[in-house]
Amino acid sequence: MSKNNNNSDNKKSGIGNLSRRSFLRMSLFTITASGLSILHLQPKADAEETHNSSAKTYKMEDYWWGFLVDTTKCMGCGACVRACKAENDVSEEFFRTWVERYEVSEDNTVRVDSPNGAYNSFPKDHTEQGKVIKGFFVPKLCNHCRTSCCTQVCPVGATFTSPDGVVLVDRKHCIGCGYCVQACPYGSRYVDHRKGYADKCTLCYHRITKGLKNACVQACPVEARVAGNLLDPKSKIRQILKECRYKVIKPELGTNPKCYYVGLDQEVN
């Protein structure tokens, strides 16, 4: 009986079998530990994402970069868009990546929107006629095509494909004619008139060559975006491509995109 009484007292004074003193001590410890882990989170995360600890020994010939978007996972939060803008200092009115929302109504009306590139995600009070029978989000970015139109049409060679498969722009050489913008079938390029040269997604080349993740990939909370080395059979992108059915956008144009989409609907252009 006395033991039972003690237990009931303990329950009253603390949580479970803990005394108030123990509880406070554990709370303090937990808070301190959490704080320390948060402080160390960034370096730890960076350490995790190094590719074969190759930051200093990056050899372009060992890489052939590809990108994968799992549209079944994307929830349209726009974190990728914000991360990209912050990381790459992208002008307010242009986008290196954006997210599109597709809504198919009962009457087969297909509505697509991407307000401000989904920088602020999507408004919930979206005007809609009829019941939406299907809805999904599709993140978009440069497809880093193997036979890219933009590289072909650049009259001065400012746009080029790096040996590791990333389509880049030499902004000090670009004349800003806009031919590449017209030639890109994916709307991924723009000429920022304040700067005067063409710009686009670089796959965060400054990061991936140091063994870091792309800004959008790192920001995505549901791992809908994966970038990786297509030459490495053990890379995550190769594993997903092996296991899942995927598609590229506008394959009929023969650009051979290296941005692969899992769960892509035929409504997507």
Binding site: P155, G157, A158, H173, C174, I175, G178
Partner: peptide, 23 residues
């Protein structure tokens, strides 16, 4: 007038990229 960087206009002749029709 159209070029974003007209001062680099002569790049089209100095470093022509012949896969482009514009080159």
């Amino acid at each position: 007038v159209h070029l974003g960087r007209p001062e680099r206009a002569f790049n089209i002749m100095i470093t022509p990229h012949f896969t482009s029709a514009m080159a």
